[in-house]
């Protein structure tokens, strides 16, 4: 969780914005998010909790809300997050005390 909040901080959210965003996510009531976001969040949660439980209908729901290519993006990204978390937990990597992503805001699109 620490790294994701660090990246949110350099992705355009200020401290209050990060806190508000995380609180909304942590609350479990995602009704204020867009439908495609909600579906993606639910997919990521299900996959993280029990990957074997992901069914074709979950992917269909994701594709229906996000489009087929974007659904694959979400799926791939969720897998990547899942993997990175496994590595961090397996080695018990201690969270850095400072934002290791600080100072590197997204570049503006041309």
């Amino acid at each position: 969780m620490g790294h994701t909040e660090m990246v949110l901080a350099v992705a355009g959210l200020n401290s209050a914005g990060v806190d508000a965003r995380v609180r909304r996510l942590a609350g479990g009531d995602w009704s204020s998010f867009r439908p495609d976001g909600r579906t993606a969040f639910r997919f990521a949660h299900k996959q993280a909790k029990n990957p074997a439980a992901v069914e074709a209908r979950d992917v269909r729901a994701l594709a229906g809300r996000c489009g087929p290519e974007r659904a694959l993006d979400v799926d791939w990204w969720s897998c990547r997050c899942h993997y990175m978390t496994c590595v961090a937990d397996a080695f018990q990597l201690p969270l850095e005390g400072t934002n290791v992503f600080d100072g590197f805001a997204p570049a503006a699109k041309p």
Partner: peptide
């Protein structure tokens, strides 16, 4: 390569990441 091709909203992207970490109780 994924980042360039998918070009996802980073706030959305990290929100998904946050949910994965929260689900697995990973505080890193």
């Amino acid at each position: 390569a994924f980042a360039e091709e998918a070009d996802q909203d980073p706030v959305f992207e990290q929100s998904v990441f946050w949910i994965v970490t929260r689900t697995k109780q990973c505080f890193y």
